[in-house]
Design a protein around this nucleic acid. Structure first.
Lengths: 339, 339
DNA sequence: TGGACAAACGTTACCGGTAACGATAACGTT
DNA sequence: AACGTTATCGTTACCGGTAACGTTTGTCCA
């Protein structure tokens, strides 16, 4: 079906114009709903647009004027990460409903990949860019500066953003859980994390937990970082390893909920009483924790809200409407049954 | 930083040309590595390109000729689905490495949304399109036909594709499991599925399982479809409900591995012996099933391979190289410990 | 009745690349 | 030395929209 040789062209403005007996400028005006045409000509034009199946040519439109296109670049660390997947769905819907087209990419936590992606998207002169990590290469920063377009950093909150920032305070979310655990009477915690990238920096909610827990008088007894994905299995076996090594800990703080669920599963299999023998706390807010008989104590992250607000902030800026540079969305500590 | 009024322009070909003392056509040739220039001028040009920080303008390039852009549209049902996330990562990497830019979208199993997305992307005159579902609206089909560009359908295999298809035979994957279970001696199966879309059609691997199992003499005793996401919890509680209702079933086939893990977890909590009391089988191939003490019996889907092969097939077609219209990738039945 | 004014169009120029073709110089060949 | 060939480079035209501006027509009021 696709003929690489002679490309079948869909009708363009000139053909519509000719068919409707007007100039192509009038057709352009009708399609963009700018004023300067009568109702009669509008109907004539729209008839031909329907009949000929006109598809707008955004390339020509974006090329015409020196200003930017209707593309918006969106870059996340990983597409297979559930949290970013949820945020992306929200961003995708919001951006499209506002008349732009998201161009989604990922960098897998490699700065050079982010840089390469940015160059690709900038060569398409996007209207704006959305990034989800705080740390960028110098070249990336320079490219962003030179582009002169609105930028939203949208996952972890940045109090001194490049341009705009929408997100939550990751450190605080961990800090609150640390303090919460401390108040509940726990004093000897194990921390179970996982990362497939060896040199990855420690997530800030874990830093926050350590601060909150130790401030309350608690002690971090173990801190294991498995060289693995943050999976159910990692939580399952990490818990076994940690609890077998030392009976002296009275709670475990997990890097995320999936791992916590693995830990919970292991404990239930061993008839360990939760939260009496051991307390468990996760992070992230799994979509359906509340239907579990034993509700997981965790921190809920409003992925949907972050996506919506960040996309809206960007578009408002594009329309030269007033916007906040920094929008903090609250995380919510869910005081469940496991701690 | 972003000035909406006077847009800061990065250098264009003319400025590079003037700085290097050549024509802009020569600069164009150097940058695209077409021949027609000497090594000396190449160095002169590249020096200025570096110095002025030239960013190619793909909009102008795509506009210049009547042919398509370097954009490739990719549409999946959901961005938060782990399987598609994995496939997308593979597609993203492959497409970018071949010099194109993927434009990822989702339709959430709503035909009109797919249609709207397609119109958006087609208005950018993409070089090709990749779709991951078999069923499309009539308008979608018409749009694809008229576009005259290569199309890859890339998840479930289609033996009569619109253009090209890369994927696995979903029915067969279930059929094999059904036959496998039958041969192992199971005869009374329960099926546990889930879908948040009420009117969704039944997944084909479940159809296949039914055929394979009943062909071998087995009976499908229960078939529950929870109105929920395919989650760990859905598997956990669905299993409880199903086993409490009737003791007569000797195995459960789950819609996916996450649900199967939930079921496994529930059974372990109740000290039900797997696979003696009840056999369990999943679908999808979770990334780390092999490290679990009890390896889940399931069907592994090569998400990474599908992504890579489908992106490569599309690009080969774009380059007018020979390609297969239908590429079947095999699923693998993992004969684990739970069945 | 003429002139101011606005609505409803058409004309022109331009965006930044690239294909096609033309021009020049260098080089080899007989 | 005359000629053909090739490498290297410049010139021109064009892609499909849109901003800016010009033109026509109609309307309304002094």
């Amino acid at each position: 079906m696709p003929e690489n040789t002679t490309k079948r062209q869909t009708a363009n403005l000139s053909e519509i114009a000719e068919a409707a007996g007007v100039s192509k400028m009038t057709v352009s005006r009708v399609l963009r709903d700018k004023d300067g045409f009568s109702e009669a000509t509008r109907q004539k034009v729209m008839l031909e647009v329907e009949r000929l199946g006109y598809l707008p040519n955004r390339i020509a439109a974006a090329f015409g004027q020196t200003q930017a296109s209707t593309l918006i670049g969106v870059c996340v660390p990983r597409l297979s990460n559930h949290f970013f997947g949820l945020a992306l769905e929200s961003i995708d819907r919001t951006i499209q409903s506002l008349g732009f087209l998201p161009v989604i990419g990922s960098h897998n936590q490699v700065l050079q990949d982010e840089e390469a992606w940015l160059k690709s998207i900038l060569s398409w002169r996007p209207a704006g860019v959305m990034l989800s990590t705080k740390h960028h290469s110098n070249t990336t920063l320079q490219l962003l500066r030179d582009a002169g377009i609105p930028i939203v950093e949208f996952w972890e909150l940045s109090t001194s953003p490049l341009d705009m920032s929408v997100g939550f305070n990751q450190f605080d979310s961990g800090f609150q859980m640390g303090r919460h655990a401390s108040i509940k009477g726990y004093s000897r915690a194990g921390i179970l994390g996982a990362s497939h990238v060896v040199e990855a920096r420690r997530p800030e909610h874990i830093e926050g937990f350590i601060k909150g827990f130790t401030d309350g008088g608690g002690t971090i007894v173990h801190h294991d970082v498995l060289n693995d994905a943050e999976s159910f299995y990692a939580g399952f076996y990490g818990t076994e390893t940690m609890l077998n090594r030392s009976e002296s800990i009275d709670m475990i703080y997990y890097q995320d909920d999936t791992m916590a669920l693995g830990g919970l599963s292991w404990c239930q299999g061993k008839s360990i009483r939760i939260p009496d023998d051991v307390g468990l706390a996760g992070w992230g807010g799994h979509e359906a924790t509340s239907i579990l008989r034993m509700e997981l104590t965790t921190t809920s992250i409003p992925t949907h809200l972050i996506g919506k607000l960040s996309a809206e902030a960007l578009v408002r800026k594009l329309r030269s409407e007033r916007t906040e540079d920094v929008t903090a969305v609250p995380t919510r500590l869910i005081d469940g049954d496991t701690l």
